[in-house]
Write a protein that binds this DNA or RNA. Structure first.
Lengths: 211, 211
DNA sequence: AATTTTAGTTACTATCCAGTAACACTATAT
DNA sequence: ATATAGTGTTACTGGATAGTAACTAAAATT
């Protein structure tokens, strides 16, 4: 399996890896810079030449790793979905009461929406041109929403969460948390732990004074 | 002031108006179909020919009413901002306690995010290519957010809302409410009054059971 | 050493689409 | 009636950019 090893090692963030790992590392590097650029400038305002330049390669090289531009979105989504589902798995497996599960979900999901690839997925899901890819993307999201809906329903059943409409509440929960992915910046003025604390108390205790 | 009156009357949704009103009605009609199309297909996937076709005119005619494609976004924003600011005016003017003001804001804002032009503004703000327009758009939004922040701070001061960080809470409030604009459909399964009720109780009482 | 696979290049095509130039019609004002 | 201003058309230009063809080269396989 041949490649220009020395050059590749230097160019692609210097990791010395096996060849297969190297290939997927390069794909991952493409997805990462693409995701960041899509978030900053938008999908349509980011050209494949832009992405290529950020990797010090030319556009046709990208086609060695991706099928087409939209494939970047699809691959990002795949990674994002795996991570999110894995995260919800751990929450489901726990023996916490429903309310505690929801608290853990909120806190953990805020960590997830700081990741560029997950943010890219959140902001571009369902926007694929290819109708099959689009439908799959929307299905993915419905699945996730459904899992959270189930956790909410469970929490209502064990009386740790007040009676409410789990469908609507799940959507609103995602609205508020996904919204974070659009504005949050590590370098920004809002501290991550403060954000977590405020989001948790808003969504669990609400605004009303406890007097 | 000349125009093909009969034709125009039929084409542009049949309203018989004075000529000046007719002109701005046509502009408004353009903005409305454009906004709807931007929301459904996205800004970049909507061509000016698409918009023109929806109005039974040709593309160059649009340029009689708008400066360029981006100008549609800017004009929608202007209308949206006026409406939102007017709405916040009425809330500020009331003599309600802070908490009641926030309840009114949440309920009223949900009404606003059902309007196509406001939804278009919410989903495209800050995405203008022209740096001046972009900055203005972000400023607009900062202003609105600041006004809500002030209402929250006031509500904390009068002890009708629990102690929290008004800056972060204002952002999270907008995240959850603006999120609605992305998915809500009049024809959809979620009832508007249910949505309002659930959003109000989530944001004011939180999830936790009241036992 | 010869061959194949992987990785990359330059140079091109094809398409889409925003924006414009030049021209045509209609109604009102003079 | 005729000029004029407002409204609209057809036909075009120009720029951006997704995707491809054809080629080069290095490394691994044989």
């Amino acid at each position: 399996m041949g490649m220009r090893l020395k050059v590749a090692k230097e160019k692609w963030n210097g990791q010395i890896t096996g060849t297969k790992e190297q290939r997927s590392a390069k794909l991952r590097a493409i997805l990462n810079v693409a995701a960041r650029s899509f978030l900053e400038k938008g999908y349509h305002k980011t050209s494949l030449d832009d992405i290529a330049k950020l990797q010090n390669v030319t556009k046709p090289t990208l086609y060695y790793y991706i099928k087409n531009k939209e494939d970047i979105l699809i691959q990002c989504e795949k990674i994002a979905m795996a991570q999110i589902n894995l995260f919800i798995d751990t929450i489901e497996k726990s023996n916490d009461i429903g309310f505690k599960k929801l608290q853990n979900f909120i806190a953990g999901y805020i960590d997830l929406v700081m990741d560029d690839i997950i943010r890219c997925h959140i902001q571009h899901r369902g926007q694929m041109k290819d109708p099959i890819a689009k439908e799959k993307s929307l299905d993915y999201h419905r699945d996730i929403e459904h899992r959270v809906r189930k956790i909410i329903a469970e929490a209502i059943a064990d009386h740790s969460v007040r009676n409410c409409n789990p469908t609507i509440i799940a959507i609103l929960l995602f609205d508020s948390l996904n919204g974070i992915s659009a504005w949050y910046r590590k370098e920004g003025t809002v501290n991550k732990e403060d954000l977590k604390k405020e989001a948790l108390s808003l969504l669990t205790k609400g605004l009303v004074s406890q007097n």
